[in-house]
């Protein structure tokens, strides 16, 4: 087993987590980007087309508590969106994730994986890393809301698993996302 002596480990204090989430010990990248509000195309402006994952149950009766469909129903969505080349959580994303945290508190047996995804407009390796940043932004926010990190894992798919098949602003906006995926309950 190789030893990795100096890996940074996040110890998340709730109050600090938001500030740390996007950029633990790495200010330059985050700070050089324009503030969220100054961005010309805020992908969260239109709440309608938030994608649902494929396991979407037919809009129908009894939701199984702790299921993916239950999360989507209670939180409004299982997905938060990001600006281009950014892993900062918008106000809207934080609101959605706060509901995810609440739902996780109500379903203490559930474990989730935070999936990070990118649009196609980045190189393959970079997007794997960017997707990991997005997944960790979401994870750290949930932890800041009091969710035990032992219940949270992350995975990055880079640009390999877009939600929408397309090459325009609308598709890219939907593909820059983090998905809270129920893995066990």
């Amino acid at each position: 087993m190789p030893t990795l002596p100096t890996l940074p480990r996040f110890t998340l204090l709730a109050a600090l987590a938001l500030a740390l989430a996007a950029c633990a010990a790495k200010p330059p990248v985050a700070l050089e980007k324009p503030p969220e509000t100054a961005r010309p195309q805020a992908p969260v402006a239109d709440p309608a087309p938030i994608p649902v994952t494929e396991t979407a149950a037919p809009a129908a009766p009894a939701l199984v508590p702790g299921s993916q469909a239950d999360l989507r129903d209670k939180a409004g969505s299982d997905t938060v969106l990001f600006a281009y080349d950014s892993y900062e959580l918008s106000a809207e994303a934080r609101a959605v994730l706060a509901r995810h945290a609440q739902w996780l508190q109500q379903n203490p047996g559930v474990r989730v994986t935070l999936e990070g995804h990118c649009d196609e407009r980045g190189t393959r390796e970079y997007n794997l890393a960017l997707g990991d940043r997005r997944a960790n932004s979401a994870k750290n926010f949930l932890a800041s809301q009091g969710v035990d990190v032992a219940r949270l894992s992350t995975i990055s798919y880079g640009k390999e698993r877009p939600a929408v098949d397309g090459s325009d602003e609308a598709a890219w906006a939907q593909n820059r996302r983090a998905v809270t995926l129920v893995t066990s309950r």
């Binding site: 190789p2 100096t6 790495k26 330059p28 990248v29 390796e125 890393a129 960017l130």
Partner: peptide, 16 residues
């Protein structure tokens, strides 16, 4: 030897 050595340590994405 399966020895791992970290080559970059800074903030930011170092890859490829």
């Amino acid at each position: 030897t399966r020895q791992t050595t970290r080559l970059t340590t800074g903030a930011g994405i170092d890859t490829a």
